[in-house]
Design a protein around this nucleic acid. Structure first.
Length: 739
DNA sequence: TGCAACTGTATTTTT
DNA sequence: TACAGTTGCA
């Protein structure tokens, strides 16, 4: 028998061997589901002689797709490269790129990110005279997104008596996108369904191609994704979905937990495999996770178990203050690193990104290296978006959205007022901004018109030259011809320098794409084409869309560096760490206030999130919170999270404020105020003395320093490197005045 | 037109 | 707090 089944438990074996017909794998956290999936794919190829071209595997994130791909290749070798493994969204991009013209769009469509979406919505609202203060653009965006995920068009909403404004905005928004030949993330899914429904021959092509379909994280699929899967699997019915309803944490994005719950009624002949053995965590951690999740209603009960040993009790630490909490975590990491653990063994998880700052500061103070996952994505940076807009405009001069973005970047003296006039004119004559320029005499000032003409000439000149260049050298050309690079160079700031670096990084990404990635994509698609044969413009369009879907830019080396990982719990799904800290475990933060107010459904999702967080830990789990903390610039106090009370006391080792009360102190770290420095007499709790700029101080950790600013009770002190300027409470016990 | 200063307001998660 | 949107001035 195949060695692929070695070391598999009976349930895992069953999941791998059940290749024909519908199969539901209920995979608890850490139960080796990715391993099952990769081995199943390898098994299909090596034992069942299934061609890699007939296998599809869909994951939730790009990272998961990449990893799965690597693991399949490791198992089966080069042929693994030909298995189509991707996210829903990138799969749809590829499908649409072949046939979207059948439903009226141009094959060279571009993708819109959420920031772009919002600006379209704002413009639409303006046109419709809707007051953004009464109904926020974000509200409309989420309504539209929900509708699309439900595969509903504006006219479908009409029948359902939705908010009339939503329908109008949706309609106009969709028209705008269509005119600009752009699609948003939700369109990728919805339009794919439309394509399949209106063109059975296209659907049939993919049905025949994908004879064996795998969907990871099935609990996170929304209705549109569900529909795509259902359609694709209709013919061969070899559909294997893997998931864990207890880890459904994306309902806010339209994910419908019902999809996995009703799989058995969708496919009455489905086999079901339950994976309950956990290979990740010590039993104590699983006990806690089980304790929490069992409070959710309507779930299929499962009991995770582990043979990795009992493990230590979970350390629950309640600190007096948010900064104390952060310091506690930093101290623990510093301490534990001395013996068994390396920095990369630790993860600090939080509910919201804004919580990262306190942790960062504490780690910085202890000189603990960390990597922050998520936050401001590389592709959301202004310079990258600008460059991409230029490139998109060159590929499609009628793309008004890109036109507006870059027409005055760098400054060309073409201001908002002129663009406004041009827009109205263009709308009347049903032209794009770019093509309306030539007839715009009298619409805008003569001088402005000339500038617009120059801009147009420049874009078309670049367009004419693209085929003489590789992607990277064309990007160079664009950056220099547009004056964008010069603008940054003239700025002469560290900020601008880093923007230049980012643009350079973009260029190397393009090179990598052109030389390596593109051929892999084409191979997977069974395309006859080779990257070398494609026009640069085509390559550029594929690159732009590829990048729009890419949110994580971290390389493998970066991820493996010896650093503590900081991220949201959402970002941590699918990952594991020997030591995990979950911070801010307070009602109001985790669960979020809105979820508490909202009621059962939202609370249950928060609870699943807690379950995900807890089950990330392999050996040790720390749960922390604080009696009071700064939130939105105000001090506020939160009770401990309701979830901590759901964990049996026997699994907890409580430390901190309740067991050992001590005076609270804070290390408030505010940003340097721009206001002129005022010297205010400070009230010092422990000495009664006040601080003034120039005072010399001695700090227990940072050593000698000089006071450089006083603001209320907070004083800024310059310490020698590597500490730099710190803001501390004047009453901080570690601080002493020197004479 | 462009910039600086000011005001008001909303604070989640992301393919 | 922080940022987006607005106002007012050069």
């Amino acid at each position: 028998m195949s060695q692929l089944l070695d070391k598999m438990n009976p349930q895992q074996k069953e999941a791998i061997l059940t290749t024909e017909g519908p199969l539901l794998v209920m995979a608890g956290a850490g139960s080796g589901k990715t391993r099952v999936l990769t081995h199943r794919i390898a098994y299909l190829m090596s034992e069942k002689q299934v061609s890699p071209y007939n296998i599809l595997a869909i994951t939730f994130t790009n990272k998961a797709a990449r990893e799965m791909k690597e693991r399949v290749e490791k198992l089966i070798g080069e042929r693994g490269k030909d298995v189509w493994i991707s996210t829903f969204h990138s799969m749809c991009v590829r499908i649409l790129r072949r046939d979207i013209d059948l439903i009226g769009y141009d094959l060279n469509f571009g993708i819109l990110d959420d920031a772009d979406q919002l600006s379209v919505i704002k413009t639409v609202m303006e046109d419709l005279n809707l007051d953004p203060k009464r109904q926020s653009p974000k509200y409309f965006l989420s309504q539209i997104s929900n509708a699309k995920n439900e595969l509903k068009t504006p006219s479908d909403l009409n029948k359902e008596f939705e908010n009339e404004d939503v329908i109008r905005v949706y309609e106009k928004y969709q028209q705008t996108l269509f005119k600009n030949n752009r699609v948003d993330f939700d369109d990728l899914l919805m339009l794919t369904v439309h394509l399949f429904e209106k063109h059975p021959e296209v659907l049939s092509f993919y049905q025949n191609k994908f004879q064996y379909i795998h969907i990871d994280e099935y609990q996170d699929t929304n209705h549109a994704q569900y529909k795509i899967v259902t359609l694709l699997a209709e013919k061969f019915r070899n559909i294997c979905v893997v998931g864990d309803s207890d880890q459904s944490i994306y309902s806010w994005r339209g994910a419908n937990i019902e999809n996995i719950l009703s799989f058995e009624s969708d496919y009455p002949d489905a086999s079901v495999v339950l994976l309950e053995q956990n290979y990740r965590s010590k039993q104590m951690i699983l006990n806690a996770a089980n304790d929490v999740i069992k409070n959710n209603s309507g779930r299929r009960d499962k009991q995770l178990w582990s043979d990795r040993g009992e493990g230590e009790a979970i350390e629950y630490h309640r600190a007096s203050d948010g900064d104390v909490e952060a310091n506690y975590i930093a101290d623990k990491i510093a301490y534990m690193r001395r013996d068994a653990y390396d920095y990369h063994d630790f993860a600090v998880l939080y509910r919201t990104n804004s919580q990262s700052r306190a942790i960062e500061q504490a780690l910085l103070r202890q000189n603990i290296p960390y990597r922050l996952v998520g936050g401001q994505s590389y592709f959301k940076r202004k310079e990258i978006k600008d460059l991409m807009a230029y490139l998109r405009l060159i590929c499609n001069p009628d793309d008004d959205l890109s036109f507006v973005r870059v027409v005055n970047e760098p400054k060309r003296g073409i201001g908002a007022a002129s663009i406004d006039k041009l827009s109205h004119f263009a709308a009347e004559s049903e032209l794009s901004l770019m093509s309306s320029i030539q007839d715009a005499t009298g619409v805008v000032a003569k001088a402005t018109l000339n500038k617009l003409m120059d801009f147009k000439t420049m874009i078309y000149m670049l367009r004419a030259q693209i085929e003489d260049h590789s992607l990277a050298s064309f990007i160079d050309l664009v950056l220099s011809q547009t004056g964008y690079l010069e603008m940054l160079e003239n700025e002469n700031t560290i900020e601008a320098d880093s923007r230049i670096d980012n643009l350079g990084e973009f260029k190397s990404m393009a090179t990598q794409f052109e030389d390596v990635d593109l051929d892999e994509i084409l191979a997977e698609e069974e395309s006859e084409e080779r990257a070398d044969d494609l026009p640069t413009m085509t390559k550029l369009i594929i690159l732009l869309n590829d990048l729009m879907l890419q949110t994580d830019t971290e390389t493998e080396e970066e991820a493996n560096e010896s650093k503590v990982t900081l991220m949201t719990i959402h970002a941590a799904k699918g990952l594991e760490f020997p030591v995990v800290f979950i911070c801010g475990f307070e009602d109001g933060i985790f669960p979020l206030r809105s979820a508490i107010e909202q009621g059962a459904d939202d609370l249950e999702e928060e609870r699943r999130l807690a379950y995900v967080a807890i089950t990330r830990a392999e050996d040790l789990l720390f749960i922390t919170n604080a009696q009071s903390r700064y939130q939105y610039g105000m001090r506020s106090a939160n009770p401990e999270s309701m979830f901590i009370r759901e964990i049996s006391e026997t699994y907890l080792n409580k430390t901190g404020i309740e067991s050992r009360p001590r005076p609270s102190f804070t290390l408030k770290e505010a940003m340097e105020s721009k206001a002129p420095k005022r010297q205010i007499k400070t009230v010092s709790l422990n000495s009664g003395s006040s601080w003034n700029s120039g005072d010399k101080v001695e700090h227990d950790t940072f050593g000698e320093g000089v006071v450089v600013g006083v603001k209320g009770e907070v004083i800024s002190i310059a310490f020698s490197a590597p500490h730099g300027i710190k803001k501390l409470m004047g009453s901080h016990p570690a601080l002493k005045k020197r004479s």
